[in-house]
Design a protein around this nucleic acid. Sequence first.
DNA 1: TTGAAAGCGCTACCAG
DNA 2: CTGGTAGCGCTTTCAA
Lengths: 339, 339
Amino acid sequence: MSTITDVARVAGVSVATVSRALRGLDRVSPATRAKVEQAARDLRYVASPTAMSLASGRTGVVGVVVPFLTRWFFATLISAVEKALRAQDHHVLLFDLEGERFDARLRLTQSMLWKRVDGVIVLNVPVDQRERELLELLSLPVVSVGTGIGSWPNVRIDDAAAMATATTHVLDLGHTEVAYVGTVSPRSAHPRTPAQRAEAFQATMQSRGLRCPPRWMVPCDWTAAAALGETAPLLAHKRRPTAVVAASDEMAFGVMAAARRAGLEVPGDLSVIGIDDHALSGVLDLTTVRQDVEEQGRRAAQILLASLLDGARAQPCREEQVLDCELVVRGSTAPPPQR
Amino acid sequence: MSTITDVARVAGVSVATVSRALRGLDRVSPATRAKVEQAARDLRYVASPTAMSLASGRTGVVGVVVPFLTRWFFATLISAVEKALRAQDHHVLLFDLEGERFDARLRLTQSMLWKRVDGVIVLNVPVDQRERELLELLSLPVVSVGTGIGSWPNVRIDDAAAMATATTHVLDLGHTEVAYVGTVSPRSAHPRTPAQRAEAFQATMQSRGLRCPPRWMVPCDWTAAAALGETAPLLAHKRRPTAVVAASDEMAFGVMAAARRAGLEVPGDLSVIGIDDHALSGVLDLTTVRQDVEEQGRRAAQILLASLLDGARAQPCREEQVLDCELVVRGSTAPPPQR
DNA sequence: TTGAAAGCGCTACCAG
DNA sequence: CTGGTAGCGCTTTCAA
């Protein structure tokens, strides 16, 4: 493979001129530029990103940090981010922080980031103090989706509003015996999403003068399998809810499965609602509150690219984008059965 | 942030010595090494990957190429690959080749790979002639999962065997009216998986003296939603199959949903089987043929790392690893209904 | 065992 | 508009 020197030689100009011509800078005559471009084409020249980075200080790479990859929400987010970044000639370096335990995760380290990425997009990972200091120290532009980080730009939905919408839908149908699936222990490694949704659920219940007994606030690691397992005892019990609000669609799938296995009809005997509008929700006929995950990814990428491309003139400060959600009524919710 | 020069100054040695000491090379006295390590620690020194790459020619980065990110299979694969690579201090640069259309995709280009990655792992993407030449030209080590590429190492399951297992299970239950979901038009942009599974299905049927009418070989883009839509008419028809073999679990989900919407019981009126053992298959009680996706990712990463770390002594040639699959009987299959 | 110095391939500044 | 050249921060001979 050829280097810039080869191109310069073939084109009969200096490497400086080649560099300028190929990057589309001005101060290059059209004739020279044409000559250089022709030479580059002939030699199949592609600049070494490694050398460019060392010389310019920029890598063209963005670190994308996720707590898991295999959940629909994150896979969808990453895909959107990757496309938006590639459209602007940037690449994605992937950091999957998934740890052994549900509430543990890997830490961001200096050797992951230093001189390796121009910026970081953090997808719903709560970043602790030391990690924040690291990002600050490396003076990396950061954008977060979901859980916010310090005063860096953030894109998210209003979790409380989304949950209020879901809960209200169920209550409007006439349900009073409502259970909730998706509480998690309040460890710092968890994003704020679970707590916010749980609180909004309870607040909405209370605003109608209702109350969900603690036994019906079901803890869950936010997988369908766990939701199935955790909900089963609830439905087997003599007194059972007529509706279950799940904090995510994946958990709602588990709840629907639990109902079916308990011999209950959805929505005849039990209404189920989730949040997300997962790719399978339409297929499984789940009523949900839709969030536009791809749009969140796109916006995060755009914000980061703006601060990367603008370069010098840094954003004054915090930028927040809160996207609206939308109730999608399908076949998993109905009025409660008659006594 | 400090450079190797800073460390050299503080430790009172040359940069060459720092380089050796920190990389654990020999020919460094224990005392010197200790001094250098202390200095590096004090300065929070982390070597610039960019400068290391330029000097050494290695980047420590592996390109991971996928056709989609949002499908369970690929997300799971990537996650496994990422973990295995990071355990050996390598990073993942993600290339999502998903295009606008189902059967179109982005191409691998020189500017994606050249001097940017040390090797490439291709996840079930058929690589065309020009791309193969590119990889050859850049003399990059390549490992593929699923669809093989030229004579590079490959990790996969035996698709034909897996499908034979699935089909045989259904036939052993006594079904004779069996439909298939998941044929795709034989465009070159498709991996070989769909064709292989479809052929194995038909071969297995034939070996029992059965035949699936063309109308029952249902084309599908391998999503649950499409499977739902494509299967519905089949089930609404007067003469309908008593079992459906889906080429993947995601499509099987769609088939089960179609059955439910048609008022058919699974497995009472219709048996459904898939291939994969998707994360939701247990929850949805789908009988399937399990493949160990994570293990495939891990092995691919190991093979690539071996050729990266060994460096000089290149593998003699083609390495193939074919993993076994296993029938997982759940509640979606049963003998056909009595006439 | 250690140091000096020549690159790696490109950018960016300063002359011309 | 173009060329010369000094780095960017590290690795890697080759001497000492």
